[in-house]
């Protein structure tokens, strides 16, 4: 009996020892794995020092913030009366400058381009065609899709014409106000010294500057270019680089707008930041730096999206020089005023 008892004891001893060893091995492996998971990456791609802006360069402060009504907020526009139009989800919604919600236009797909005429007509660029609405939100016209790969991302009104930026085909299209296609501008043409737009992701914007020339971003060349209405390439400014004076990543600026005096407000993705450049394209100041958009910066840095085509910002400026910024990732609209 004693012997048996001893045997049992020994068996238990071995079983317990084996169990303890297994637990120790598992714990050890788990600890090793978690240590390996947590340890610093010797191959880290470190841009953390670029995510903080020198406070001396920041010229604006936030005075208000609200959220776009739907997800996938992508575009802002200002009506001549100062109302803000926001394209989010399959809607365009109007807001007073104070953020009070007004008219809402339902669309069949998200809007990527938006502008409003003096008469209150709202021009909306959907992916491959343009729709026109009156000030009450009633659809007045639907223009045909001009080409197979069309992807409208920008709209500007010039005299009695509409200029549409087609990122898919990398051209500007000139329409009359009835939707008749008049001309194609900006396609690469060596004989005319037209460099052509390089658009790695769908961000091509056109604005009319006070000097009467069109301004267009050329994101793959990291610059803003000026064109006559006849399509002559006039000038360009902008440099690639991660530093604050330059345009970062593969393709920036993705958006820009003009202040009442014609200076430029540019928006970048990757390092989301909004900056001001002079009429000649010299860097002046930062409206809001990367630290102001942590979620947006993370959208490109984290997993899940797999690329940086989801992050980004849009901006418009009103007659008082206030700058409205739309954050694609959070859907927030911020109103920025120049610091006293």
């Amino acid at each position: 009996m004693k012997k048996e008892f001893q045997l049992l004891d020994r068996r238990e001893f071995f079983r317990d020892a084996a169990k303890a060893a297994a637990v120790a091995a598992t714990v050890g492996a788990a600890a090793r794995a978690s240590a390996q998971r947590a340890r610093p990456n010797p191959f880290a791609y470190d841009v953390s020092h670029l995510e903080k802006t020198d406070s001396k360069l920041i010229s604006h402060e936030e005075i208000q913030r609200w959220r776009a009504p739907y997800s996938e907020a992508r575009r802002l526009a200002l009506a001549p009366g100062g109302e803000l139009l926001v394209a989010s989800g399959n809607y365009v919604t109007t807001f007073s400058a104070e953020g009070e919600r007004g008219l809402e236009i339902a669309l069949t797909e998200p809007a990527r381009a938006l502008t409003v005429s003096e008469e209150g007509l709202i021009y909306i660029g959907l992916r491959d065609h343009i729709e026109v609405f009156d000030a009450k939100g009633q659809r007045q016209a639907t223009w045909d899709s001009p080409a197979r790969k069309t992807w409208f991302t920008g709209l500007a009104l010039v005299k009695d014409e509409v200029i549409a930026a087609d990122a898919g085909n990398r051209v500007l299209l000139r329409y009359d106000r009835a939707g008749k296609l008049l001309d194609r501008l900006g396609a690469r043409d060596r004989e005319r010294n037209v460099p052509g737009f390089t658009v790695p992701s769908p961000h091509l914007i056109v604005r009319l500057a006070p000097d009467g020339l069109l301004r267009v971003n050329n994101p793959g060349r990291h610059r803003v270019e000026a064109y006559s209405l006849d399509g002559d390439f006039v000038l360009a400014w902008g440099q690639p680089g991660m530093g604050i004076r330059t345009f970062c990543g593969c393709c920036n600026p993705i958006n820009f707008t003009l202040l009442p005096d014609g200076r430029f407000v540019t928006c970048e993705k990757g390092l989301p930041r909004v900056k001001i450049y002079s009429l000649q394209g010299e860097f002046e100041s930062v409206v809001a730096g990367t630290e102001s958009f942590p979620e947006n910066a993370k959208a490109c840095a984290s997993r899940g999206l797999g690329d940086c085509t989801q992050g980004g910002l849009d901006a418009v400026a009103d007659a008082q020089g206030r700058i409205f910024i739309l954050d694609y990732v959070t859907g927030e609209i911020r109103v920025m005023k120049q610091k006293a």
Partner: peptide
């Protein structure tokens, strides 16, 4: 296979490296 280029491309580009 260090993924440094993958991070650069994903963070600032189209994410074509993986």
């Amino acid at each position: 296979g260090c993924a440094k280029c993958v991070e650069g491309c994903t963070r600032f580009g189209n994410g074509s490296l993986f």
